[in-house]
Design a protein around this nucleic acid. Structure first.
Lengths: 211, 211
DNA sequence: CCTGCGATTGACTCGTCAGTCAATTGAGGA
DNA sequence: TCCTCAATTGACTGACGAGTCAATCGCAGG
């Protein structure tokens, strides 16, 4: 279930209303920013009464929290799932990059909120978010580490650091799209996936001629 | 001069007071976050009266703006300066990474504010910040582009994208230190500089044996 | 029908805080 | 000595907005 656990009976349609509010919140947060928007903006956008927001959520913060956790858990699941598959590291990283880029393609507002309002503010929010973010890093680091053991990747870079650089590159690209300093479009999205992998795996250095 | 342009005469010591307020603001923003702190917190931290903040700055926002622009302009200058020097691309990138890492070492609070509070608000704040940030990207992209022409870097990655990945990696590392998910210390700082360059330039792929 | 309970409403409260402003100080020039 | 004007003070205001709550609605089961 998606709702708060302590409720005993839940009328049909309640979960949908909750969703309605969450989706409205995404649009409002993306448009005005978490701090600059009012709870009444969310209610208006969702077409419900002010008080209903507080029926489904304890506070304005909890709405944002929920959005982040929902999405981030999906991402962790995807990474874990991918991790179990029989693919080489480069393919796994490509799949992760693809998932994140496609997430943006599918719901730019949601990704904007998560990156701008949460990831960058991990500070003021609970320790929980940091742990979730760290978890993703560790999964990626694990992929890199195994590739190093197998000899597919060199071991001049620590796995932890490689994960940081990998995720950092993706986040910058998303930021570019979010702040409109980078052109958007299907072709650009596909190119971005390719370039992240090409940069992180292949590096910038010209390869010394193999002959 | 560092103060607002329209003032006619300025008593000696005024610029210092302004500085005092800016420095206090850095500490307060770093500790509580821009949105969660009050202007009175800044005044208290600086040991001046509430109203004095408004004598030197038009608004709370202007204080943050000033901090960002001051620092970012220094960075742009450093990059431009470096760009003119006779160094290979890899050395230039290393120098840029060094400058940013050392900036953090020297004043972690300031870098925290710039990364957490400004980048995040690039949104709501004027277009000015985005332009400044873009300017930095373009300088870095220029370095990469020339290296590609000279044959030091391959041209499988667009210069623009390389710049994004480079800066993204650095920003993630700083974020790690800021949110304390990464160990800090002189050795770590030096290692980070090395690893950024190693990852971005060298890549993760094992080099196919050159024989 | 009625009754119980979750869903829904929106007016209201109450603390908070950015920004204002009239008053005071004090340094330097005439 | 006195005058001027920037620097400095901090009490005050006005708006704003998160969260509360008492009232109403409407379905399901008896």
């Amino acid at each position: 279930m998606a709702a708060r656990g302590e409720r005993t009976t839940e009328r049909p349609g309640a979960a949908e209303k909750r969703r309605l509010i969450l989706d409205a919140a995404v649009r409002v947060f993306a448009r005005q920013g978490f701090n600059r928007c009012r709870v009444s903006d969310i209610a208006d956008e969702a077409g419900v009464a002010y008080g209903l927001v507080y029926h489904y959520f304890r506070s304005k913060d909890e709405v944002l929290d929920t959005l982040f956790l929902e999405r981030w858990n999906v991402m962790l699941e995807v990474i874990r799932d991918l991790d179990g598959q029989d693919l080489v590291a480069r393919e796994k990283l490509y799949a992760i990059a693809s998932f994140i880029v496609d997430s943006y393609r599918h719901d730019p507002d949601l990704m904007k909120v998560i990156i701008v309002e949460v990831t960058r503010a991990a500070n003021s929010f609970g320790q929980t978010h940091l742990e979730k973010i760290t978890e993703a890093y560790e999964l990626i680091a694990g992929i890199v580490e195994r590739a190093q053991v197998e000899g597919a990747f060199k071991d001049t870079v620590t796995p932890r650091f490689a994960a940081l650089a990998f995720y950092g590159a993706i986040e910058q690209v998303l930021s570019g799209w979010i702040f409109e300093t980078l052109p958007r479009g299907d072709a650009e999205y596909e190119q971005a996936k390719r370039l992240v992998i090409e940069t992180i795996c292949g590096g910038l250095d010209a390869v010394p001629a193999t002959a």
